[in-house]
Deep mutational scan, measured.
Amino acid sequence: LKTAGVNTTDKEMEVLHLRNVSFEDAGEYTCLAGNSIGLSHHSAWLTVLEALEERPAVMTSPLYLEIIIYCTGAFLISCMVGSVIVYKMKSGTKKSDFHSQMAVHKLAKSIPLRRQVTVSADSSASMNSGVLLVRPSRLSSSGTPMLAGVSEYELPEDPRWELPRDRLVLGKPLGEGCFGQVVLAEAIGLDKDKPNRVTKVAVKMLKSDATEKDLSDLISEMEMMKMIGKHKNIINLLGACTQDGPLYVIVEYASKGNLREYLQARRPPGLEYCYNPSHNPEEQLSSKDLVSCAYQVARGMEYLASKKCIHRDLAARNVLVTEDNVMKIADFGLARDIHHIDYYKKTTNGRLPVKWMAPEALFDRIYTHQSDVWSFGVLLWEIFTLGGSPYPGVPVEELFKLLKEGHRMDKPSNCTNELYMMMRDCWHAVPSQRPTFKQLVEDLDRIVALTSNQEYLDLSMPLDQYSPSFPDTRSSTCSSGEDSVFSHEPLPEEPCLPRHPAQLANGGLKRR
């Protein structure tokens, strides 16, 4: 031991701790050491302190810390799992109470259905409401065949629209698609105040090879029609059969078919879209009749726009005509997947739907009320060519290029400059510069009032120099000039209409 001194630092001082000593042992101690050379000694003081209470040693090893962490984590996880189980049990009790009230408590799974309603004014964004509309049932219905791709499903009954099956008599087919079909039928007692009145209706139903998605689409269309409500110039929902059998959606019946066929059937002799010497046209149409058709469609679209509904496929083929020549817009409630459109795929009647699409819908897939206005301009062109085919002879690839360059279709022969300028306004490259349906209704209403009933179509000018029955994407082998976009001569082996020498072909294109 070194004694503290003047020249001794703290580091040089050493402390020796002795245990089991008493206060009597306190004092100075000297350590002597010697050898043959000499003797040396050092002294140190022993200080006795009071004994401290002994405390248990605390484990601070890493293993002990890990044990604490794992135990704490396990406890927290157990609490979370327990909370989830309690929540599930409570929510399951509430669901079972709800389904027992709906009398569908025996169901095993559900079809996820979404009601898609486009509400954005400047995009294709949609509001999806995840309302459960249908659930599968283990119960089988008697007297009705089961669908191959869709098991029997039981829908919640809506008393406002439900019609008993025994009050619906199915008739002949009116048309069909890939998985759905429409048949003519007679409904008894659609009007609650007149329970014995028989009404001719159209009934939409699924085919035998339909899938769950097809069922989902049909129900979504029905729900959309319920929500949009009734208007004179749209196909209205009349009722539905949802209980004890396949789903039947009952809508208004339009006896004169779609507008395109309606116009073609009323072309003057010699100007029909397909040469037929025995062709006997229906009643002749006046200019006022054509303007009235456009006015009614505009009114229907104005109503749909007021309900925040974007059609996305407005064309003469999707406008139906009733016995009283009332125009009714159809298929506005269809669920369309705008992100998976095949631009080169034709519709069932051979038309390319892209020829009715606005550039922003075609290139950027942006659907708005103003893109519907563009389609309405093409529909106007169809009306005043009596069912002509837009951009005849123009392949899709060429159409993309022409639209980007600002080309537009030429004025039809039997169309006034004012109406043609309306078409051109609908085809404005900037969507915000196109008229609204409200403005179109006002303009067409004024034109109808000024147009005489006696103004019949000028038969001295050809209505349509093209054969719409030909595929639109076909290139002409005998077109006049180098560019078949601006002219389209008859093919030698097929009868077509004579070309008027002083008139540019109706399907020609102009640059805006």
Rank of each mutant, 00 (worst) to 15 (best):
N414D: 10
V448L: 07
L334F: 02
T242K: 10
D372N: 01
R365W: 15
N196K: 10
N325K: 07
E221Q: 04
Q370P: 05
E212K: 08
M422R: 08
I235F: 01
M225I: 13
S476A: 14
H339P: 04
S484T: 14
L215S: 03
I366V: 04
P277R: 10
P431R: 05
S255Y: 08
G257R: 07
K401T: 13
Q454H: 13
M301I: 08
K226M: 15
A358G: 04
R312L: 00
G406S: 07
P353T: 02
M423T: 00
I383L: 14
S452A: 10
E261Q: 04
H340Y: 01
S371T: 04
R408H: 00
Y456C: 09
G393D: 01
E252D: 03
K200I: 12
G180V: 02
G177R: 06
S469N: 09
E442K: 13
C274S: 09
Q181L: 08
C241Y: 13
L444M: 07
V291E: 08
C293R: 04
S476T: 06
M423R: 01
E283V: 10
I341M: 13
L463M: 08
D289G: 04
Q454P: 13
K411R: 08
L440Q: 01
F437C: 01
S286A: 08
Y295F: 06
D337A: 14
R266L: 03
I235M: 07
L238R: 11
A298V: 09
C178F: 07
P268A: 03
A429G: 06
D337Y: 15
V396G: 10
H428Y: 07
Q370H: 11
H428L: 05
D443G: 11
N349S: 05
K346E: 15
A305S: 15
K194N: 14
N276K: 11
P392S: 00
P269A: 07
S475C: 13
Q296H: 12
F179L: 03
T322A: 15
D464V: 11
G300D: 01
G388V: 07
R197L: 05
Y275S: 15
G388S: 08
G350C: 02
L380R: 04
D193V: 09
M222V: 14
P359T: 09
D244Y: 06
L403V: 13
Y456S: 11
N236S: 15
Q264K: 07
Q465K: 08
D372G: 01
H231L: 06
E212D: 06
L379H: 11
D166G: 07
S216L: 09
R267G: 00
V430A: 05
S467Y: 07
T451A: 13
S375F: 03
D445N: 12
E360G: 03
W374G: 04
N414K: 08
V354L: 03
C426G: 00
D472V: 07
A305D: 09
E221K: 02
K404T: 08
M357T: 12
C178Y: 07
K288E: 03
S292Y: 13
D372A: 01
G175V: 02
G239W: 10
H407N: 05
V182A: 08
I234F: 13
N233D: 13
N258H: 01
C415F: 00
A298G: 05
M327T: 06
G350R: 03
T322S: 13
A449T: 12
S460P: 14
G239R: 07
L237M: 10
G387R: 04
H369D: 10
D166E: 05
N236Y: 15
V485D: 15
E221G: 03
D464N: 12
L386M: 05
K213E: 14
A358E: 03
V354G: 01
R299P: 01
V169A: 10
W427R: 00
K308N: 07
A294D: 02
P173T: 11
V326G: 03
S216A: 11
V291M: 10
L190Q: 06
H231Y: 09
L174P: 14
F376Y: 06
G189E: 11
G229A: 15
E272G: 08
H311R: 01
M225K: 02
L380P: 14
A330E: 02
A210S: 11
G270W: 09
V182G: 02
Q465P: 10
T477P: 10
N233S: 13
V198E: 07
L403M: 08
A429V: 13
F332Y: 10
M421T: 12
L450F: 04
P431L: 00
N318I: 00
F400V: 14
P431A: 07
K192T: 15
A202T: 01
M461T: 11
T347R: 09
L170S: 03
F470L: 10
S287Y: 15
M409I: 00
L271V: 06
Y466H: 08
A335E: 00
V321G: 02
Q439R: 11
G177C: 03
M461L: 06
D289H: 10
S371I: 03
K288R: 11
V203M: 05
N280Y: 05
H339L: 04
Y303F: 04
Q296K: 08
A254T: 09
L271P: 04
V354M: 02
I234M: 14
G333C: 02
S375C: 10
K192R: 14
D289N: 11
L218R: 07
D364A: 06
C415R: 00
F363Y: 11
G180R: 04
P246T: 09
P431S: 12
D410H: 13
V319F: 01
P353S: 02
I228N: 15
K438Q: 11
Y248N: 05
R446P: 10
D458V: 07
K404E: 10
L444Q: 00
Q181E: 05
L285P: 07
P195H: 03
S220A: 14
E405D: 10
I310L: 06
L320M: 09
A316V: 01
D244N: 11
Y273C: 13
M224T: 11
L215M: 07
V169F: 15
G377V: 14
P392L: 01
K345E: 03
D217G: 04
G333A: 00
Y344H: 12
C293S: 05
R474G: 09
Q433K: 11
I447S: 14
M423I: 06
P471H: 09
M357I: 05
A358P: 04
K401R: 10
S413R: 09
Y420F: 03
I447N: 13
L238Q: 06
L290P: 01
G481A: 15
F384S: 05
I310V: 03
E398A: 09
V297L: 05
D483E: 15
R434G: 00
N414H: 11
D458A: 06
D209H: 04
V203A: 07
D166A: 15
L450M: 11
L402P: 04
L459P: 13
I234T: 03
P359R: 03
D289E: 12
Y367N: 09
D372H: 14
A298P: 00
I310R: 00
A358V: 01
T368A: 05
T348N: 06
P392R: 00
S484P: 15
D445G: 12
P471A: 08
K438E: 10
N196D: 06
L419R: 00
L379P: 05
I188N: 13
S452Y: 10
A305V: 15
S432P: 03
L379V: 11
W427S: 00
H231D: 14
H231R: 11
V485F: 15
Q465H: 07
D214A: 08
D191Y: 05
L463P: 13
I219T: 11
C415Y: 00
G171A: 12
G300A: 12
N417S: 04
D342H: 14
R446H: 06
H340P: 02
Y456D: 12
K226E: 14
V251G: 08
D313V: 01
L304P: 01
Y262F: 04
H340Q: 07
E212A: 09
G377R: 02
F179S: 03
D372E: 03
C309R: 02
I329M: 12
P173H: 03
D331E: 02
E282D: 09
G270A: 15
N414I: 12
T416A: 12
K192N: 08
P281L: 10
V251A: 15
D443V: 11
A316S: 05
H231N: 04
L320Q: 00
V297G: 03
N325H: 05
R424Q: 08
G245R: 05
H279L: 11
D324V: 14
I338N: 01
Q454E: 09
R474L: 11
D217N: 06
L444R: 00
T368P: 03
T199S: 03
V182L: 06
S208T: 09
K192Q: 11
S469I: 09
K256N: 15
E221V: 02
Y420S: 06
